[in-house]
Design a protein around this nucleic acid. Sequence first.
DNA 1: ATGTCCTGTCAAACAGGA
Length: 262
Amino acid sequence: MRFATWNVNSVKARLPRLLEWLEQTRPDVLCLQETKVAADGFPEREVAALGYETAAYGQGRWNGVALLSRVGLADVRHGFDGEPGFPDPEARAVGATCAGIRFTSVYVPNGRTPEDPHYAYKLAWFAALRDALAAQPGPAVVAGDFNVAPTDDDVWDIKVFAGATHVTAPERAALAALRELGLTDVVPRPLKGDRPFTYWDYRAGMFHQNKGMRIDLVYATADVAAAVRDAVIDREARKGKGPSDHAPVVVDLEPGTPGSPV
DNA sequence: ATGTCCTGTCAAACAGGA
């Protein structure tokens, strides 16, 4: 089976690109973030025409996550137990079981700056996610925009990030706490250059200079991680007219493993 | 580096967020 994660930065603005990409890439499951639509505004008909069921969790202008699947979509859950809000819950996590794997699409709070209340919210959100995942049995994939670069090599120039979010020790400790549950960071291959960036700012030609960050992550339980045949960043989707500022991460699993039809 | 893009308000430029 093939699954993917993509922060589309508005599913409405990205719809032509999304449909074209789905037809070309044909993932069995797609985790979407920053859909920026309420659930009733999600283009379900358009993706259904390509064979996908939708679980959309949205609130309108900000945030918004979704799961698309053509291998079943069971036990859909919006958010998770103990999820904090700011102050109210936001549309940042949606889970469903697809072909025997529990998928969760996550859009972690940005944090803004280490001094901002949104930063404490980000860490609290991570801690609650960890506790919710600890209580969850079976093969699982947690994928999405984590808004943390796991190592200094996961940003284009660590010196530029002095005093900034996405690279601080507490944020990285939050990722480590997820790995301590038994989750593996499935690091994708960059198809150009030597660093697996998934995000490049729209401004100042950052993409063309490959000044990016790896903040879109795939965390998988050991059984799923052991079945990974390949994982790549589809940088072609970051090119051309009207791209998202994030590229999709695409993961292929060996046949006959969790997630493959029996 | 603060250079772009997206949404919503409102009917053209802003504000706010990333």
